Amino acid sequence: MARRENPEINAGSMADIAFLLLIFFLVTTTMNVDSGISKKLSEKPPPDYVPPIIKEKNIFEVNINRNNELLVEDARMEISELKEAAKAFIDNGGGEGKVENGVATGPCTYCKGEKSESSSDHPNKAIISVQSDRGTEYGTYLKVQNELLRAYTELRNRLSLERYGTSFDELEEAYKKDRTDESLKKKVEDIKIAYPQIISDAEPTSGN
């Protein structure tokens, strides 16, 4: 009796299908991308640069320790309270602004703060100093930065609504769509000059 041979399976088409599936999954699969905070690093100052003397009251100290606890001006604070505290500091308007081209910009006429002599003189002098620990969780650091950015955003939106009848967010979005519009450019620059975003990141500490 003749021996029956098992028919061979053509695996060539299966390889093609597997290759097509691989291409499909590579094209359609989304990859998780680490998010962060976009910041422009300051340029290196010239060798003969003499840093200006900054009054202590114009510095808003924010510290995050290795236990992810927030200390603002040496006092414990919840992250949820940080935005309003930062706004009060930036918008205090308790003195004169920076001297530009030998001329002082004068007091802040648009600030709505308490004008306390113990807090910042002017938004263009208000510096927020953030210092974290090497053991601080990155997520906590991002939350702190986000609250500080929200403080500036809300102050800018308020002033933009008062001066131009539209929020700064809408103003900036409109300018991004039409960079040739000089009127929009001047309005955006006006609000940014009124509330310059001055956040300084100090070198992380190495807590025990």
Rank of each mutant, 00 (worst) to 15 (best):
R3E: 07
D91L: 02
T28E: 09
R4I: 09
I127Y: 04
K83Y: 07
A174H: 01
V72G: 00
N68G: 04
N208W: 11
G139L: 09
D121V: 03
R163W: 13
G106E: 06
L155A: 03
R3S: 08
N32S: 15
P47I: 07
T180N: 04
E100A: 09
V62Y: 02
M14N: 12
K115Q: 13
T205H: 02
N101G: 06
G94Y: 00
D190N: 11
I90W: 02
L161S: 12
A2C: 06
A88K: 03
F89C: 03
E78D: 14
G95E: 05
E96K: 10
I53F: 10
L70H: 02
G135E: 07
L155P: 00
E172N: 13
F60W: 00
E69D: 10
E182S: 14
P52F: 05
A86R: 00
G12P: 06
P123Y: 00
E56R: 14
N63H: 12
Q145N: 14
D48P: 00
I79V: 15
D74Y: 08
D178H: 02
G97K: 01
A15F: 15
G106F: 07
I199P: 02
A151V: 09
G207S: 15
A174Q: 04
E43P: 08
F25Q: 05
E172D: 07
N65E: 05
D178T: 08
M31T: 10
E73R: 02
A194D: 02
A2Y: 11
E154T: 07
T30R: 11
K177C: 04
I191E: 04
S38I: 14
K39Y: 13
S80W: 03
R66V: 10
C111S: 01
K187P: 04
Q131G: 03
E84L: 09
V144K: 00
L171P: 01
I37E: 09
K192F: 06
I54Y: 11
